[in-house]
Design a protein around this nucleic acid. Sequence first.
DNA 1: ATTATGCTGTGATAATTATCATAAACCCCT
DNA 2: AGGGGTTTATGATAATTATCACAGCATAAT
Lengths: 235, 235
Amino acid sequence: MSLVSIMEKSTCSCENCQLRSLFFSHVSMDELNNICDIKIEKQYSKGESITNEGERIHEFLYMKEGLVKLSKTDIDGKDQILSFSKPFDFVSLLSVFSSDKYKYSVTAIEDTTVCILDLEVVKKFAQQNAMFTMDLMSSISEATDKILLDNLAIKRKHLKGRIAHVLLYFSDYIYKKDEFELPISRREIAEYIGMTTENVIRTLSEFRKDNIIKIFGKDILIADKKRLRSISEFG
Amino acid sequence: MSLVSIMEKSTCSCENCQLRSLFFSHVSMDELNNICDIKIEKQYSKGESITNEGERIHEFLYMKEGLVKLSKTDIDGKDQILSFSKPFDFVSLLSVFSSDKYKYSVTAIEDTTVCILDLEVVKKFAQQNAMFTMDLMSSISEATDKILLDNLAIKRKHLKGRIAHVLLYFSDYIYKKDEFELPISRREIAEYIGMTTENVIRTLSEFRKDNIIKIFGKDILIADKKRLRSISEFG
DNA sequence: ATTATGCTGTGATAATTATCATAAACCCCT
DNA sequence: AGGGGTTTATGATAATTATCACAGCATAAT
C-alpha cells in the first residue's frame, strides 16, 4: 500500500459521502471536518445487532451502507418488525431526540456500515446550527412517514396481499431486480406482516405453484410481476 | 364586559399558554410576542375537518384544546384511522417539514381549538433559532413514536384485545374516567383497529353481556377494568 | 310529517387465519 | 462426520374474522 493511500484512509472523506446531502448540506466545510474527525465508521455483519431496545442512547448513528431491520420484542419474547431501512431511510434517529433509551432494536440483515457520532456532540451542534437541525428534522419526518404509510398499506391487505407487498418491496425498492436473495427468514416476514410463519411459507408455496414466483431457498425470482402487483393491491 | 377584559382579549396571551413548554420554551419573550401577534386561533366543532389529505400545507398548526383523529382514505374510499391526538400529542407536524402536501386528514372528534401560524414564518424562525427547532423535533419525534408504539400494540392483539385496548385508551389516557362518551362511532373504532364494524359492535355487546362494560348508546361505563386490562393484554 | 341515510345491533354462513403435528433440509458446532 | 437446533414445508383441524342479510332507531333534509 502506498503512502498516499494510507493518508487517504486516515483523513476524513466525508466531503464525498453520498449521505452528505441528507443533513450536512447546510454544514460548512470546516464544521464538516470537525464532525468527520470524531466520527467512527463501524461494520456489522449480517445478523449482528446494532442497537438494542432499552439500552441507553449514547450515540447518533446513520447508515452508510447495508440493510437493517427495526424491531421490538413484546412481553412474551415475540418479535415484531416495524420496518426495514437502507441508507437514506433513517434509523437511529427515531427516538434519539425524544428519549434517552432506544425503543426499538436495530439489526443488520445485510452487511452494514454505520457512521457513529457522539450524541452529545451532535446535539450541541444542532443547538447552534438551525439549518442542520431542520434538515435533520425533515429526514426524520420523511423516514417516519414512510414507516407509517407502509404499515397502513399492510394493515388493509389480507395475507396474500401482504406477502405480495413484501416481495414487491424488496424487488422494487431495495434490490431493483426481479431476482434477489431474501435477506430475511420466513419467520421475519411473518413478524413484519403480523401473520404466522406457516402461513407465510404456505402462501409463498402457493405463489410458486401459480407460477408467480420461483423459489430456490432464499432466492426469489418474480416471474409474473403484473399478477403480484394485482394481488398486492386487491388480494 | 369591562375594558380590561376586552384588552386582555385583544392582546396576546401566549405567555400563559400551557403549550408554551412544548416548543416555545427556548423562545424569548420578544420572539414569542412576535409569533403571538400573527397567530390565529380557530375553533372546530365536532365532526369538522381541519386538514385534508392531499391539500397543500400553508400553515403550521397545533392543538390547544380538544380531540382529533388522523386518517387516510384508500383508493376504494375506505378510511383508515392512524391515531387520535389531544393537545401535547402533536398533529399537523407530521409531514410539515418533509412534504408540501398533507398525507393525512385531521378531523375534530370533539370541539377543538387550533392555533395557526403561517408555515413560512415558522420555518424562517426555525432556521434562526436552533433550540426552538430542537424542541420541535423532540415533540414530533415523541408524538410519532407514540403512534408507532400504539399501532404495534394493536397489531399483536386479537379482536377482543383490540377493542379492550381502545376502551382503555379513552378511559385511561383521554378522559381519565371510567365513564365517558365515546367520541367516535363503532365504524371509526373499526377503521382504527382494522376490523369490521359488525365485529366491533358484536364485541362491545359481548363485553356488556359479560358485565365488563355498560353501554348507553355512545356512553360507556367500564365496570370491570381489571378484566378489561387482562383482555387487552392477553386476549 | 316523511323519506332518506347512516348508525347500531344480531344471526347465519363463508372465508380467512391460527394452531398443532410431523418431517425433510439446512446450518452450526466440535 | 454426526448430533442439535433452526428453518422450510405440508396437512388436518380449530379458531377467528368477514360477509351478507335484515331490522330498529336516530338524525338530517325537504
